[in-house]
């Protein structure tokens, strides 16, 4: 009656997790996408969103502060990686980062005002918690041994959002 691993999929999404392409749940969701879209809508009024690489739920009541912290985090990290001569898309997609390395990038960023104004980014411990807890919990980051982290494809939600800002700004300017 219900797709395989139904309970795990529902629990996972309702915990605010992103289900990404490298997980087995992703394929089940993909095959049963229509069912799950309707299931979440009819049962809870939640919207199941998807891209080529991940699924996630959104609700009317949204975690704006958390989302904003994560968006700022990626914007700064990518900006600093680029300044360091690194290809930030490749780095986020395929590299592991030691947490200290991440902290250094954020702490030494030129966006110091933005960092100072943000409680999740303005000191090393908070950054560690944002990555190690908040982002791991939502499956945006994965913790490896030796305090190393990598990012799942869910990071794209937060950087594509920034790219869209420019597109909409350009459209506005053209209209």
């Amino acid at each position: 009656m219900y797709p395989n691993k139904h309970k795990q999929i529902v629990t996972s999404l309702m915990d605010g997790r992103f289900i990404t392409i490298d997980e087995s749940y992703f394929d089940i969701l993909k095959i049963n996408q229509d069912f799950y879209v309707e299931f979440f809508d009819k049962s809870f009024g939640f919207e199941l969103k998807n891209t080529q690489e991940f699924y996630y739920l959104i609700s009317d009541e949204t975690k704006e502060n958390t989302s904003r912290d994560i968006s700022i985090f990626f914007s700064i990290l990518c900006y600093e990686l680029d300044k360091d001569g690194k290809n930030f898309m490749d780095e986020l997609g395929f590299s592991d980062f030691h947490i200290d390395e991440i902290v250094e990038y954020i702490k030494n960023s030129t966006w110091i005002d933005v960092v100072k104004a943000n409680k999740q980014l303005n000191d090393g411990e908070s950054i560690k918690r944002l990555v190690g807890s908040t982002m791991v919990k939502r499956n945006i980051a994965i913790q490896h041994s030796d305090d190393k982290y990598s990012f799942t494809k869910a990071y794209k939600l937060f950087i594509d959002f920034a790219r869209e800002l420019i597109k909409s700004e350009m459209n506005e300017a053209n209209s």
Binding site: I76, Y79, A162, R163, E164
Partner: peptide, 18 residues
Amino acid sequence: ESEYLLGFHLYLTNMNCY
């Protein structure tokens, strides 16, 4: 990449993100 970077720049400049 520059499109992304422009986006980050717009988002972070003048504390727009807040």
